[in-house]
Design a protein around this nucleic acid. Sequence first.
DNA 1: AGGTGTGAAACTCTTCACAGCA
DNA 2: TGCTGTGAAGAGTTTCACACCT
Lengths: 256, 256
Amino acid sequence: MATGRNHRPATRSRGIPEATVARLPLYLRALTALSERSVPTVSSEELAAAAGVNSAKLRKDFSYLGSYGTRGVGYDVEYLVYQISRELGLTQDWPVVIVGIGNLGAALANYGGFASRGFRVAALIDADPAMAGKPVAGIPVQHTDELEKIIKDNGVSIGVIATPAGAAQQVSERLIAAGVTSILNFAPTVLSVPEGVDVRKVDLSIELQILAFHEQRKAGEEAAASGADVTPPPLRGGPAANRKGPDGDVPAVMPA
Amino acid sequence: MATGRNHRPATRSRGIPEATVARLPLYLRALTALSERSVPTVSSEELAAAAGVNSAKLRKDFSYLGSYGTRGVGYDVEYLVYQISRELGLTQDWPVVIVGIGNLGAALANYGGFASRGFRVAALIDADPAMAGKPVAGIPVQHTDELEKIIKDNGVSIGVIATPAGAAQQVSERLIAAGVTSILNFAPTVLSVPEGVDVRKVDLSIELQILAFHEQRKAGEEAAASGADVTPPPLRGGPAANRKGPDGDVPAVMPA
DNA sequence: AGGTGTGAAACTCTTCACAGCA
DNA sequence: TGCTGTGAAGAGTTTCACACCT
């Protein structure tokens, strides 16, 4: 997911599995909704449905946090909200900077969910001098020259990169040098960062390509069902004339 | 990842593992860059570095596609680009619609990578009548009333939802009813969709929360190194008075 | 009765390490 | 010699199913 080394290589000291961590925000959101409706308790079954996972998984996930439920009853909503928030580190406020205030950066700055839980946009930074001073989402954009100062003055440890791909690596280096240790990267590049820095990436075109893959599969299946050819297009003769199918050779319907 | 059922439940017919599929776009991007620099061949080691994965994983991934390399030499760049594109279904053009043309929707519409490889923005749709006709990224926004017609006329099977959370479920239902079978959801909601529909979600606040979790860990480790307390904040007495630490009880330094 | 917490089984994914081909 | 392709081992994740508590 990131280029930075994995967390807790072999020995997981207080080990919550990464897969579980990735789901905690989901549970938190569902719980927050329940809390707003003043629902006092919830069963693993109900909460799992709201979060879109299965209940055994949810219970196992919670078991890593401790025994927070009551047998025969379920989980106390408020209490769980607190416990998960705490576990995720959302009981404190994280100042973040957004670098690259183009369409996307502006969208992120305006995103409400940002401020909602634990995060605060400390600054918007852009390389275009013409942007400097312009308010976006009520926050004046600052020039890249100020980057290091902003990071240090605000004690920022989380940076969001929404620059063009070409600028991303350099921006990440400056952020890191100034003290940032977690980066959310929207630029379509692989960032290489030193050990200890976490990078998560959000990449639109990758997501679309994954969807396209499955979409193509569905088309293939329909075709198969109606007796048409299945495997993608023809196997034209490329440079390497020695390729063979996935496992040995697929005993599939050959195209014309 | 999605609410829709998993692909290939038990028997993987022509099974490329999901984890591999998710990395193919990454390889494709790295290969495209090499191709633009007219690099003819590349070793698994080099390509892996460019894609930010390790070489054994990359070779294993490629082995699911077939034997496309040459021992002692490496992989033919152009040929691999073609094979991966084909596998991902990018040799055909996928028309997509973007629903919800706010800040984010506009950012997506303007996103270059969209058009670049295999995707074409067929239409922009928004519920605000005031938006109708306005061009965004050169494409006139159409009103939600037209949604079904647009989907059908263009044979759209992939939809992008960039609406507020409250509208997302309903939009997804309309998209699906009109024929969409893959959805990329940017709204912070769990979509519930019928079997056979793929949903992928991109959720800013979830990503940030995951970063916050690790960030907090790092802070904890530093503190531990300097002898301060490790486990998050205090264990206040909540509703359930029976909680216990993760594995038994953490023999950690108790806070004051 | 009802629903959590969890060992154990099943499955998926990653990494190792090396046989075998160019 | 150099690098791919891959069995086999290992790590991580999900699911099952049921003991146990309320």
